[in-house]
C-alpha cells in the first residue's frame, strides 16, 4: 500500500505527514490524541543518514512530548549496501536508532511498528523489531533472503527449500511466517483505525515474541531454550 493512502485511512485526509528523501514524518491526531509517526518509503535502503534521521525524531519526541505514542511505518529494502556507510559505522548508527527507540519505550512511550510494504534484514531489526511490538499489512513482504538466493548461498537445492518452506516458516519470505514465529504480533486487516486503537491500548511492553512463536507453532524451541538456560544448575 502507498504510505499516503495508508495514513489517509488511519488519520484522515488532513494528516499533515510529509515525505522528504524516502523519509516520512508527521505529528498526527488519532482519537483526539497526538501520535508521532516516523517512517520510510520507496523501499528505502537504510544507511547512516536515514538511521540518524529516524533517531532524531525519536529523541525529539522523548524530549518535547514525554509519553507520546510513536508509530513506525516500515518500508525498506534493508541496510544500505555501500562501503562508505560501513566506513562511517552503519552498525553504530543502527544501534543508535535501536537504543533511542528502546529509551522511548523505557520512558513510557508506546512504540508500534507497522510493516506496510516491505521489510528486510538490517533495515527492520532496529525499527519494527525493537518496538513494543510489530504489526504488518497482509500484502506486505518480510524476508531476509528469497529462496533462489538462499539456495545459491547455502548450496542447498532450491526445490528442497521450496518444499520445506511449505511446512517450516523459519527461512522462507512472508508475513504469515513472521506471525507464526511471533516476530509480527498480528496482521492489520479491515478497519485499520480499529487495529491501531487496539494496538495502542493492548500492545505488551514485555518481549513476548518467543512465547508467541511457541504458542503459534512457528518457533517451537526459542522460549524453551531461554527457560532451560534460566533454570540450568
Amino acid at each position: 500500500m502507498q504510505w499516503n493512502s495508508l495514513v489517509t485511512q488511519l488519520f484522515g485526509p488532513y494528516h499533515g505527514m510529509r515525505e522528504g528523501g524516502d523519509f516520512l514524518q508527521g505529528e498526527v491526531i488519532f482519537d483526539g490524541e497526538p501520535v508521532a509517526v516516523i517512517g520510510t518509503t520507496n523501499h528505502a535502503p537504510i544507511g547512516v543518514r536515514l538511521a540518524l534521521a529516524q533517531a532524531r525524531v525519536v529523541l525529539d519526541t522523548v524530549t518535547q512530548h514525554p509519553g507520546r505514542p510513536i508509530l513506525l511505518l516500515i518500508d525498506t529494502q534493508g541496510q544500505q549496501l555501500r562501503r562508505r556507510d560501513e566506513l562511517l559505522g552503519i552498525n553504530r548508527a543502527m544501534a543508535h536508532l535501536g537504543a533511542s527507540i528502546d529509551l522511548a519505550r523505557r520512558r513510557g512511550h508506546r512504540v508500534i511498528g507497522l510493516v506496510y510494504d516491505q521489510a528486510l534484514s538490517g533495515g527492520f531489526i532496529t525499527s519494527g523489531l525493537i518496538a513494543d511490538a510489530c504489526y504488518a499489512l497482509p500484502e506486505a513482504e518480510i524476508r531476509v533472503m528469497r529462496i533462489p538466493a538462499m539456495a545459491r548461498v547455502t548450496k542447498l537445492p532450491e526445490e528442497k527449500l521450496t518444499a520445506l518452506s511449505q511446512s517450516n516458516p523459519v527461512f522462507a519470505p512472508g508475513v504469515q511466517n513472521y506471525v507464526a514465529m511471533g516476530g509480527v504480533r498480528a496482521l492489520w486487516q479491515g478497519d485499520l483505525q480499529a487495529c491501531l486503537r487496539e494496538a495502542l491500548a493492548h500492545t505488551p511492553t514485555e518481549d513476548q515474541r518467543a512465547r508467541d512463536g511457541a504458542e503459534r507453532g512457528g518457533r517451537r524451541m526459542a522460549a524453551a531454550v531461554v527457560r532451560r538456560v534460566l533454570d540450568a544448575a
Binding site: 531489526i125 518480510i142 531476509v144 514465529m181 526459542a222
Partner: peptide, 20 residues
Amino acid sequence: RLHEANAGLIAVSEVMRALL
C-alpha cells in the same frame, strides 16, 4: 544464519532487547 534466517533475525532483535 541464512538456513534459519527468519528465526535468526527475530532472535537477534530479542538479544538486543535483552542486552539493553
